[in-house]
Design a protein around this nucleic acid. Structure first.
Length: 119
RNA sequence: UGAGUAGAAUAAAUGAUCGCGGCUGUCUCCCGCGAGGGAGCAGGUGAGGAAAGUCCGGGCUCCGCAGGGCAGGAUGCCGGAUAACGUCCGGUGGAGGCGACUCCAAGGCCAGUGCAACAGAAAAGAAACCGCCGCGAACCGAGUUUCGCAGCGCGAAACUCCGCGGUAAGGGUGGAAUGGCAGUGUAAGAGACUACCGCGUCUUCGGUGACGAAGACGGCUGUGUAAACCCCAUCCGGAGCAAGACCAAGCAGAAAGCGACAGAUUUGCCCGAUCUGCUUUCAGGUGGGUCGCUGGAGGUCAUCGGCAACGAUGAUCCUAGAUAGAUGAUCAUUCACGACAUAACCCGGCUUAUCGUUCUGCUCGGCAC
C-alpha cells in the first residue's frame, strides 16, 4: 500500500478510541482521527468473541483488501481503526467492502471528486 | 453382493490479473566517504492432519550446582521399544461379540483405620424376623385339626398361643448374606460326611516373566469397597524462547519503613548451602536492532536384524520462519459444491473437532460355479 501503513501500538489504538469519531453499521465499527501526517494508518481489530483464529484473520484480510483496492479515493492524514462486529464472521468480501465504503462516506473521508462515480 | 471390523491415503482442481511475508540476484535506481541502507525488477518459495486443547514426556536455555529429611505429585499385570513418557509393540488375565475384533485405573482389604444410605433379623469379634425341630411348663382358658359316641352337643388326642434351646437347608431384603449343586446324614439341620466344580496351600513341569498345566493336601475359619484414607514399588530441583545472549541509545535519583535473633534464593516445611540488603511511594530513561530461529532423536527408498514397536548400514532429499504478526480479492472453467481449523523455539505422544472420497487386510451372511 503506497499511501498507508498499519497502526501498531496499543497506545495509538487507545488514542483513536478516546479522541476519534465513530460510526457503526451491521458488520463493523469505524473510528477515525486526524494524525497530522501525510499518510493514513489503518488498524484492524477482531476480538475472540467474533470467532476463532481463522475467522478473525479472514476479517482482517478482507478489510485490508477492501481498503487497498480503494486506497486512492481516501483522504490522507487519518488514523483509522476498524472493529469487527459479530455478524462480520460470516460476511463475504462484497459485504465487507460495502460496509467499509458506507462508513467512509459517513466520515466524509472520500475525496470529493470520487463521489459521483462511487454512488 | 449386503452387513461389519481393523488400518492407510487424501483434505477441491486449473488458469489469468491485482496484492502480502521470507529468500536469492554478475539486474536497475536513490542515499551514504564507507561498512551498508532503501526502492524497484526478476526468479523461486510460503501452514495442518489435527497447525487446536496445552494434558503428558523430552531436547534446548537460564537459576547463589540442585545436598539430606518430611510433606506433595505422578504412575501401577508381565516383557520389550525409546532421549523420555501417562506413549507404542508383543504377551498374560478378565469382560463383551456367532466372528473379524474391541474394551479394562488389571498391585495390596490375613499392616492398620474407615465406610456400607434405604431395605433387611443381621452389613463383621457379632447376628434367628418368618419358617423347621427338640425339651419344658401348663392341664385353667381360647383357637385349629383329627377321632370316638348313647349324636347337633359332649369327650379324647395332637398342635399353636408361654419359656428355654438347636438349626444358616428354605422365605423375604439388598449391589453384596457365611462357596455352588446333588446326595448321605439328622429331631430339624449344617463341609458334619461324599462325588463333581470352584477356592486356598504345597510340589513338579513349562515360560525371562505376568501366568499356565498336572498332581497331592486342606473341608475351605462369615462380604464388598483401595477413581476411601492408606501400604508397597518406581519416578519427579525450579522456571520457561516474553527462556536467554549480544549490540546501540538513554537516565537521576529522593523519601519513608523493615532488618543482622533479619531478609533473599532453591514449588511447601525443617536442616544445610549461598548471598547482603529488602519493601513501599514519588520522580526519571528506554520500549530499537542482531542472534536464539530452524538441518532435525528429520523425511523417502533399499538391504539386514527383530513376531512387532524399533534398531543398524547405505543412498538420496532439504520443504515457512513472521514479530501486531505474511496465504487474500476478482474473473473463467470443471466437479463429489468444499468439513474442522491458521505455525510463533523444536520434537515424541495423547485428547478433542471434522464435509467427503479412495484403497487394503480380515469376519459373518446371501447368490452363482
Amino acid at each position: 500500500m503506497v499511501f498507508s501503513e498499519s497502526l501498531k501500538r496499543n497506545s495509538d489504538f487507545r488514542n483513536v478510541y478516546k479522541n476519534g469519531k465513530s460510526f457503526v453499521n451491521k458488520y463493523m465499527v469505524m473510528y477515525v482521527l486526524e494524525n497530522n501526517m501525510n499518510i493514513n494508518r489503518l488498524g484492524i481489530t477482531a476480538s475472540k468473541k467474533i470467532g476463532n483464529s481463522v475467522v478473525r484473520h479472514r476479517f482482517a484480510r478482507l478489510v485490508r483488501e477492501s481498503y487497498r483496492l480503494h486506497e486512492n479515493i481516501f483522504n490522507s492524514g487519518l488514523d483509522i481503526v476498524v472493529v469487527a462486529r459479530k455478524s462480520a464472521a460470516s460476511a463475504g468480501y462484497g459485504e465487507i467492502e460495502g460496509a467499509l465504503l458506507h462508513l467512509s462516506k459517513l466520515h466524509h473521508m472520500i475525496k470529493i471528486y470520487f463521489y459521483d462515480e462511487d454512488n
